[in-house]
Design a protein around this nucleic acid. Structure first.
Length: 211
DNA sequence: GACCAGGTCCTTG
DNA sequence: CAAGGACATGGT
């Protein structure tokens, strides 16, 4: 990570914070965050919310209940989120990891972040973004989430670092304040949805990042 | 109808 | 390692 990359990331973070201020993001308890983190893979949040309600209606909104549920019931509940078969499988794999490695979600709270992260990444279907989302929003840890939106903004700003380098890059400039981690990610998503399309970034003007 | 969505895994070159 | 495909429904 070059010096100029760090400076640019600082500018992005500062500009977005000034523009958006504090915004609500990912409400819900730890179990729901864990479920939502999987359901939102390659999926719009509005559809995820419907899936979460369907699960809740069937009493399948906890790791404990998902662990012992029939896969078919989970699939039926989350069909509206797409990739429903593989996601049902991933939810059960995560639930099995939680219950069998720790006994409960509560027991996980006293485990160090790096240990939790390694464990989550060992679950098939959980990659870096999903793991970091769970850690940041579910367990309130300082583990920054890099998603497609964040990468888009960063590219738009001319930062060349590989995707793998982005997480340490952000974490090196962010204050060790967990809420800032949550907010910064939220800002990234909001900004990208509004201004930074997949094909072209219409307005990096807001960030003054061209060049 | 084409294209995309807050990824991840697996297979190929 | 990089690139391409599979997984699937729902909205624009």
């Amino acid at each position: 990570m070059s010096v100029s990359s760090s400076v640019k990331v600082q500018q992005i973070v500062r500009s977005l914070a000034a523009h958006y201020g504090e915004i609500a993001w990912w409400p819900g308890n730890t179990d729901v965050v864990m479920i939502g983190a999987i359901l939102t893979q390659q999926t719009r949040w509005e559809n995820v919310e419907r899936g979460l309600l369907e699960l809740q209606g069937r009493g399948l909104n906890t790791m404990h209940s998902i662990y012992s549920a029939k896969k078919q019931d989970i699939e039926d509940a989350i069909r509206c989120t797409g990739f429903y078969r593989i996601k049902a499988q991933r939810l059960q794999a995560l639930a099995a990891h939680v219950m069998e490695s720790y006994g409960s979600v509560e027991k996980m709270r006293q485990i160090p972040t790096v240990i939790l992260r390694t464990g989550l990444l060992s679950v098939k279907g959980i990659g870096e973004e999903t793991a970091d989302s769970i850690l940041c929003f579910g367990f309130l840890r300082t583990s920054f989430v890099i998603d497609a939106y964040t990468e888009r903004i960063v590219r738009c700003a001319g930062i060349k670092d590989k995707r793998k380098e982005l997480k340490p890059l952000f974490e090196s400039i962010l204050p060790s304040d967990q809420k800032v981690y949550c907010q910064t990610h939220a800002h990234m998503v909001e900004y990208a949805k509004e201004y930074c399309g997949k094909k072209r970034c219409s307005k990096c003007i807001l960030l003054n990042l061209n060049g």
